[in-house]
C-alpha cells in the first residue's frame, strides 16, 4: 500500500446519556492510502455512521471521543482547534451523504451553491471566471449534459441520479485528500447505481482521493472497493483486501453476512439467517460482542474480548484464530471453509 492519507488508531467514542456513557466505537483502527477505496460494511447500528462523523468531528453534542487519534497525513485531527477543522471539512475531507436532496439547499441554484463552496474555502483568491470554469469542469466530469445551462437550475429540477452526481461534483471540487461516502447509492436504482459507482471509482483513482465507502450492501462493496472492513457493535471485527474477504472470510459474522445474501444458488433451501439482533449499546455482552449470535461461541468468548489479530495482513477479531486465547477445537471454525 502507498503512504496512508488517513490513519485511525485506537479510537473510542462514547455517547453520554444522563449519567451513563454508551460505547459506540471501540478500538477502531483503519488506514486508507491515496486513490484507495476502503469499504465499511455492517448491519444498521454497528457504528458505521458514527465512525464517519467522528472522522469529520461532526458528532452530536452528547458524543465524545475518549481515546485515540485520527491522522490526516501527519496531522492529528483530534488535536487541532475547531476553526482549523472547519477549513479542513469540505476542502480536505469531503463527504457525500445518502440523500442528496437534503444536502442541497432547495432555494439556491446549484451554480450558486458550487460558487459558495469555492469562495468559502478559496478566500478571496479566486476570480469569478475561475470559479465558474471550475464548476462547469466538475459538472462535465460527473457526466452532466449541458453543464453551463444546468448551473442555473435548482436542485428540484434534477432527477435523483443527477443530484447524486452534483453531490459528487461538489465533494470533489476542491480536490479533497479524503472522501467519505455514506451509502451514496442506496436511494438509487441499480442502473443508476452502476453509473454512479463507476463514476466514483474512476474519479477517486484519477484524483488519488483516499475514499471511505460506507454501505450495508456487500454486492456494492464488491464492485467498488479495494479493501473491506466489517464492523459489528462498534468494533472492527474483520479487515482484509477485497478478494481475501470474499473468498476466505474468517470471522463467523462475516461468513454469516455473506451466506445470508439471497441468490439463485440458495433457491429451495433456507437462507442462513443470523439469529437475534445487534446488541444495543446499553446491553453489550462483556466478552466478544458477537457471542450471542455466534454458532461457535464458547466460555472464553463470553469472558474476554478477543484481540484484533493480524494473520498475514488479514485482520480478524475472534478467539478461534488466537492460539493463546484458550479457544477449544479451533479447527472447527478455521476449517469451516466458506462456500461449503
Amino acid at each position: 500500500m502507498t503512504e496512508s492519507v488517513v490513519k485511525v488508531r485506537d479510537l473510542d467514542l462514547v455517547y453520554q446519556s444522563g449519567n451513563e456513557a454508551f460505547p459506540a466505537l471501540s478500538d477502531i483502527e483503519l488506514e486508507v492510502g491515496a486513490g484507495e477505496v476502503l469499504g465499511i460494511v455492517g448491519e444498521s447500528g454497528c457504528g458505521k455512521s458514527s465512525l464517519s462523523s467522528a472522522l469529520l468531528r461532526l458528532l452530536p453534542p452528547n458524543g465524545r471521543i475518549t481515546r485515540g487519534h485520527v491522522f490526516y497525513k501527519d496531522l492529528d485531527l483530534l488535536e487541532i482547534p475547531e476553526t482549523r477543522m472547519r477549513q479542513f471539512r469540505g476542502a480536505e475531507l469531503a463527504m457525500i451523504f445518502q440523500d442528496p436532496l437534503t444536502s442541497l439547499n432547495p432555494t439556491f441554484t446549484i451554480g450558486t451553491q458550487m460558487r459558495d463552496v469555492q469562495r468559502a474555502h478559496g478566500g478571496g483568491s479566486l476570480s469569478r471566471a475561475q470559479i465558474y470554469r471550475r464548476s462547469v469542469e466538475m459538472l462535465e466530469q460527473v457526466g452532466m449534459p449541458d453543464p453551463e445551462d444546468r448551473l442555473r437550475s435548482y436542485p428540484h429540477e434534477f432527477s435523483g441520479g443527477m443530484r447524486q452526481r452534483i453531490m459528487i461534483a461538489v465533494a470533489l471540487m476542491l480536490k479533497p485528500g479524503v472522501l467519505i461516502a455514506d451509502e451514496p447509492t442506496t436511494a438509487l436504482d441499480v442502473t443508476l447505481q452502476a453509473q454512479i459507482l463507476s463514476l466514483l471509482r474512476g474519479l477517486c483513482k484519477e484524483e488519488g482521493t483516499a475514499t471511505i465507502f460506507i454501505s450495508h450492501d456487500l454486492g456494492v462493496v464488491a464492485q467498488i472497493c479495494d479493501r473491506v472492513m466489517v464492523m459489528y457493535a462498534g468494533r472492527v471485527v474483520e479487515s482484509a483486501d477485497l478478494f481475501s474477504l470474499f473468498d476466505e472470510p474468517l470471522h463467523p459474522y462475516t461468513r454469516a453476512l455473506l451466506r445470508s445474501i439471497p441468490s439463485r444458488n440458495r433457491r429451495g433451501s433456507r437462507l442462513v439467517s443470523i439469529p437475534g439482533r445487534v446488541p444495543s449499546l446499553s446491553a453489550l455482552p462483556s466478552g466478544c460482542k458477537f457471542v450471542n449470535r455466534c454458532p461457535h461461541a464458547q466460555d472464553v468468548c463470553r469472558a474476554t474480548e478477543p484481540r484484533f489479530l493480524d494473520i498475514q495482513g488479514h485482520r480478524v477479531r475472534c478467539h478461534a484464530y488466537d492460539s493463546s486465547s484458550g479457544f477449544r477445537d479451533a479447527g472447527v471454525v478455521t476449517a469451516d471453509r466458506f462456500g461449503d
Binding site: 441499480v190 442502473t191 447505481q193 452502476a194 454486492g219 464488491a222 464492485q223 477485497l242 478478494f243
Partner: peptide, 15 residues
C-alpha cells in the same frame, strides 16, 4: 440484459 448486468453481485471478480 442491461438491467441484469448492472446488478451488483457479492463477487469481487466481476469488477
Amino acid at each position: 440484459r442491461a438491467l441484469l448486468s448492472t446488478v451488483p453481485k457479492p463477487d469481487p471478480r466481476r469488477k
